[in-house]
Write a protein that binds this DNA or RNA. Structure first.
Lengths: 415, 415
DNA sequence: TTCTTTTTTTCGAGGCTCGAAAAAAAGAGC
DNA sequence: GCTCTTTTTTTCGAGCCTCGAAAAAAAGAA
């Protein structure tokens, strides 16, 4: 049973619409907003007046020469960067980095530390994380802005409520309640998201032409991750963050995977798998803990130079990825794919086998028309995705008349 | 950009809510509706008065002794079966059956014909289908009810707009525009759906306790089909009906599938595959065209009686289904599964291998807790699913004040 | 016949969006 | 320098919608 539609939901939704339109457009006029949202001029006028009074939006002061046209000049209206701030936290292999971002999406401060995630104790991992958040919460660049939301991204699976890291390849510990811990420190809502999902959010934000409602982000690094956007929203499992593309079974009883099972896509296409196939030739050898980007790069150079084990290893990776994508496409139909991470720099070595494999699957019927894109640096994407997600949360909170965030803003305005 | 929320959307949505609540409850009182929908008594009163005036709902005449309680007696309110009718059409291997169903969901008339779908010409297939629809449209049991919607179910993939059958194992023809053709005949909206999706709809309708927001229906017959309900709505591809579970690759370069590719789940678990493994032992043998249910039943009997090729064949089917489900669960998280169709009667032979395989996949971590259910007769489910879907469409049309359907009803009321 | 109890309807208040009209704020033309 | 045009923004009243409170309706209980 869908929930009943109350009357004030209407206003909330339309406020959401207006803020979203402004975020995307940058500095639109009221007329622009009316056009993109489909709401009437009167409604836009009322809503934007409210939001300006609440300090959420701000009118551009400098009448920057938008003119040259006749008629009353448009008044550019934009997100007020002073209205709030959000925090992003990205935990990845041997690295913890946090960022403070203002309400208009600009970076205010950064905090990066190296951290041996594979060996650190559970307590220390948590302590380091909370410490990073504390440092940014006390940052003087905040200048009184209320920090309203934290979004944390991690490699691995999280629970469906985005509160805990259930399992991750970068730490031996499981079921880590990051959200609860950070909420206690910061006193504001926190969610924990899968890193690849955040990559997908960022891709859409950066390039909505190409990545709109349906697309796939695949992270090629030590392991294989996926962020899946379907029908305009992030796809996730019902109990966990799901979308464990890297652990779909490519070859039953096949190569040994880092996860302990056999034949996963990752056991052929992860860095450790490519390395293992190129250097040891034994699919049952235990996976190496970590392989540097430079090592992988030299493997790729070797593979490009001459035919041999190295080239064969990349081909096997391509084949596994191709069959995996084909199986995915059988379920969701083909969509644009972006390969992200350092592994994507060897995509030329992977692509032929990938395309050959995909052509043998149900989803690959029109495999020529499937386009691939690469993006070798995942870190900026992850942070950007976290920021987009956090800001969207804040936007939605601010809609609610009488919400804590809104009251705080209104109070500030009066004082 | 989400669409703008207009003011009258509110009414439409709440009317939808009320009709849905009544459909589910049967003969609730206004107070019941207020409770289940969360709307206020006044709103329910207003909406139900409108709907009764329009002839969509009807108050129960006979003050059937709901009493024994003090206070003003409740007035039971129900769907008016006279308000409209819908048509379902189910096309399956060698069979075409249509049904006329009134607005409250009761069967009015049926029309069933045998039809050699594998050999029939494109023109005749279409002619038979339109003829069946015509016969029911002229049925005297209609008694003046307007027929407002047709939903057709077919084995195979349809386009994402549910207008054409793109590909089907039951016919050699492709890209058959059933919706356009039937709309021309009947003059009312038509959609073409995948049969397994309709099975899923029916399962939820029948047993919302077990099959609520996330579950999987798998059809075991000559081929393998799937209907997937995720987060409360039917999952479908972005271009086609998608969810081609049977053609996910279980074993790269493996057994020959009916679709021409190699290693699909169906090439191990479809009737023809089980038959082939049991009787020929050659995975590359061309698939048989059709195998009767009694032949399959005797295969199962033999497999239960003694160890041998037959038992091995069912085990292979279980293994393929298990790996397939495991791969699916890696993406969407485990959910209740219902195996539908005659093949489900041999589930005891399949289950052990299926569970063993699923336990080796990422999605099968808690494989013990995954529950399976069987339902050996798929035809009633398919028809019921079509009916539910068609009625839901009609409900939504009737919400729209000023819609054609509503005007027709209002007009009748006045005359 | 008069209380209770429960359901349903009525009524006014408060919101929201919309279209039309008015107001505002420029450039264009003379 | 003044008036006309043009475009954007705001204002205002109409029309819906939902809600809570109160009233009305319709029974059984005393």
């Amino acid at each position: 049973m869908t929930a009943a539609v109350r009357h004030d939901d209407l206003r909330r939704r339309n406020r959401a619409l207006v803020i979203a339109a402004i975020r995307r457009a940058g500095q639109p006029s009221r007329t622009d907003i009316a056009r993109t949202t489909g709401l009437s001029h009167s409604t836009i006028s009322a809503i934007s007046a409210d939001l300006i009074a609440e300090g959420v939006l701000a009118q551009a002061k400098g009448a920057e020469a938008s003119s040259l046209k006749r008629g009353r000049p448009q008044i550019a209206i934009g997100i007020n960067p002073e209205a709030a701030a959000i925090l992003t936290v990205v935990l990845s292999l041997n690295s913890l980095s946090a960022a403070l971002i203002d309400y208009s999406g600009n970076l205010v401060a950064e905090d990066h530390r190296r951290l041996s995630t594979l060996t650190v104790s559970r307590a220390n991992l948590m302590a380091e994380t909370t410490a990073a958040v504390r440092r940014l919460l006390n940052h003087r660049g905040l200048a009184g802005r209320p920090v309203l939301r934290i979004v944390m991204a991690v490699q691995g699976t999280t629970d469906s409520l985005s509160r805990s890291l259930l399992w991750s390849p970068i730490t031996v510990h499981g079921d880590i309640p990051f959200a609860d811990a950070l909420e206690e420190v910061a006193g504001i809502p926190v969610t924990v998201e899968n890193d690849c999902s955040m990559i997908a959010m960022a891709l859409r934000w950066r390039n909505p032409e190409r990545y709109r409602d349906d697309f796939i982000a695949i992270l090629l690094s030590h392991g294989i991750g996926m962020g899946l956007m379907l029908k305009g929203s992030l796809f996730s499992g019902t109990h966990s963050s799901g979308a464990e593309f890297g652990h779909m079974i490519h070859q039953p009883e096949g190569a040994l995977c880092r996860c302990g099972r056999r034949g996963c896509v990752e056991a052929y296409a992860g860095n450790y798998a490519i390395w293992r196939n190129a250097r040891e030739g034994d699919e049952n050898a235990p996976p190496a803990a970590d392989i540097s980007d430079t090592d992988m790069a030299s493997l790729a150079t070797e593979a490009r130079r001459q035919d041999g084990m190295e080239r064969r290893a990349f081909e096997k990776a391509g084949r596994a990825l191709g069959y995996g994508l084909g199986n995915l496409f059988a379920l969701v139909d083909p969509a644009p794919v972006c390969f992200v991470g350092h592994g994507a720099s060897a995509f030329d070595l992977i692509e032929p086998a990938l395309r050959a494999a995909i052509a043998r699957t149900a989803g690959g019927q029109h495999s020529d028309s499937i386009t691939f894109d690469t993006e070798t640096n995942e870190m900026p994407l992850i942070r950007e995705g976290c920021a987009v997600r956090a800001l969207t949360f804040v936007d939605q909170e601010i809609f609610a008349p009488g919400s804590p965030a809104q009251q705080r803003l209104a109070g500030r305005d009066v004082a």
